[in-house]
Amino acid sequence: MRSHRWFTPWLLVAPAVVWVVVFALWPFLNTVGLSFTDARPLSPGAFVGLDNYRRMADDDLFGYALTTSLVYVVVCVPLLTVLPLLLALLVEKTLPGITFFRTTFYFPVIASVVVVALIWTWLFDSRGVVNQALEWLGVIDSPFPFLVDRWGLLFVAILLTVWKGLGYYMVVYLAALGNVGRELHEAAMLDGAGAVRRFRSVTIPGVRTAMLLISVLVAVAAMRVFTELEVLSNGTGGPGGQSLSLVMLIRQVGQGLNGDIGYASTLSVALFLLTLVPLGAIAFMNRERKTSGAAA
């Protein structure tokens, strides 16, 4: 049934569309365009061709940022795909007080990364609890300077990301586990399958889609990391900027009245292309699976 004037729906969607165009689509196209110029905040700049891209290829800082992203993805994806699943299995059953545990496990997710990073700064300080514990255990003789060491910073930041992400992906897994029928588990039990066997043959296939989705989400989020490293390194990006992330580099290059908007845009385009890689990988894997399934 049609009862509205032709423009009513357009009036209703107008704010959303205008916002998306002004604050997402246009800036994206603008970024791509600016990446071929030497624009500054107060001058539109001139077309410089691929200069910025050539500069990026030779930029040590970009190399560091790329390494950071790569390490982040490689470490975070397996950890945040597996650990939240185990956590979800732990809180899946309806037991007294289980809501309390679910809610509690979600607290890190809602906390601001800045807040958590400040707590972490304090934990991993040279006089902090972690160093004291390690010394007490006899692992180290003198405090390890986590926060002024390239890999130390990355380690602490990744730990923070994993700690903070557990609860979020746990909830996603809980939803997926709800779709795995109890009957399958019971049938497997009657057939004498142990807990490990049931995990492998019933649970994993049941949450396979969620696992793929989560690994992509984690990979994309890992490439966008900013706040953890920014706060933990106090904005420096570690010794010589070796622990910079791509987003930190984008901000450093583009900020201020004399910021290099052109080059910052080039780095932004690189970030965008990198976040497409996991999505492409999943699309590719799905196609592979379909074709191999058809052959079999």
């Binding site: 959303a16 998306v20 800036p27 600016l34 966008r224 583009g254 385009v269 965008f272």
Partner: peptide
């Protein structure tokens, strides 16, 4: 239009948005 922006991380557009 709405769906396409879901693939676009906000960090990519911060520089341009600031302008």
């Amino acid at each position: 239009v709405l769906l396409s922006t879901m693939l676009l991380p906000g960090e990519v557009t911060v520089t341009s948005n600031f302008l």
